[in-house]
Design a binder for these strands. Structure first.
Lengths: 177, 177
DNA sequence: TGATAATGAATGAACGTTCATTCAGTGAAT
DNA sequence: ATTCACTGAATGAACGTTCATTCATTATCA
């Protein structure tokens, strides 16, 4: 319901009906409306991040780790479009989920990226001397934008197949040289 | 008020008080609450896009055009943080502004990027054979992410100085080669 | 039968919107 | 110069709707 209508526009009655329970029953399990979104958010986050971690750990070198991460990221969001919508439009932006928690999540993602970049620099496959904070946003930003486009266009095209060309862009850039 | 409290949480009474008029007066100038946001949005969009256009036209080659665009983009958002907040959190995502209009805006931006990329390819400074839709998202995504971070952290650090390293990343990528 | 869970109608606060009323400013008439 | 009628922008109290939340009642279960 939150994905379809937006958090605010969705009503408890709709949520209850969808869940096949009465309105009041919701309040036996959740403190209030925002609490539903919070729980959904942290539940999904935990689940998905474990898979991100796993995907990264499966690869040996930085480029493969990054490719696995991006593939996983796109795959998980493609698999569960409602989650994608809630993550991209409601949870990470609107103020319905505790802002500190959102910052933590973002940091977790950026920390994985940091780790990959460090490895790549040790390997010699990733340049040194770049502003590392910016590099991480540069990577996360592009993935987010690709997912956003997919969400806005109604999830028509395939998301996962964007992963390889995206990683190629990260590494090669757009310059001819 | 929309930037500070979010569109939904801000009330007409607050807006009216801030404007120094009575609640009812608002309705002599705007159809309804969403209409205020819509007008703000399209007003600012027009203003800012003219400046983007100007910045791009000032440069001769693709790299300079892109750098000018990104600099302008960051500068305009840094100058008017409330606008930045409304653009990044309310207007482009929430359903308070006509979705078609938002798509148009995004397309306008992507079209400018397309033009720059084409020029760069003609010049030989930008590679050919990349998926052009993805390249555009890749660029826009990183800028958005940088702005988002700036918004979330309360607008502490300088935004504009991110432009040059960002453009360098676009062109060079992170790979060492 | 006692305990626990579920129900859904009732409640009331919040807030966008309306509209009868006010009143400063303008110009015509005396 | 003074009065008077008119205008239309501004006002803000009142209205009506929406909806999250509560709780007395009912059902289920061990």
């Amino acid at each position: 319901m939150f994905a379809e209508q937006g958090f605010h526009h969705a009503t408890i009655s709709q949520v209850a009906k969808e869940a096949g329970v009465a309105d009041g029953t919701i309040y036996l399990y959740f403190k209030n409306k925002a609490d539903i979104l919070s729980h959904f958010f942290s539940y999904k986050t935990r689940l998905v991040f474990d898979r991100f971690r796993g995907a990264v750990d499966e690869a040996e070198n930085a480029e493969d780790k990054l490719r696995n991460l991006i593939r996983r990221h796109l795959l998980e969001f493609q698999r569960d479009r409602n989650m994608a919508v809630v993550f991209q439009r409601e949870a990470l932006l609107a103020r319905y989920v505790n802002e500190e928690y959102v910052k933590e999540i973002t940091k977790m993602y950026l920390d994985i990226l940091e780790e990959i970049i460090r490895l790549g620099q040790a390997e010699g496959t990733i340049r040194t001397g770049m502003p590392s904070g910016l590099v991480k946003r540069y990577i996360l930003g592009a993935v987010n934008e690709v997912i956003n486009t997919w969400v806005v266009t109604g999830g028509k095209h395939d998301l996962v197949e964007m992963a390889d060309p995206l990683v190629a862009l990260y590494f090669e850039g757009i310059g001819s040289r």
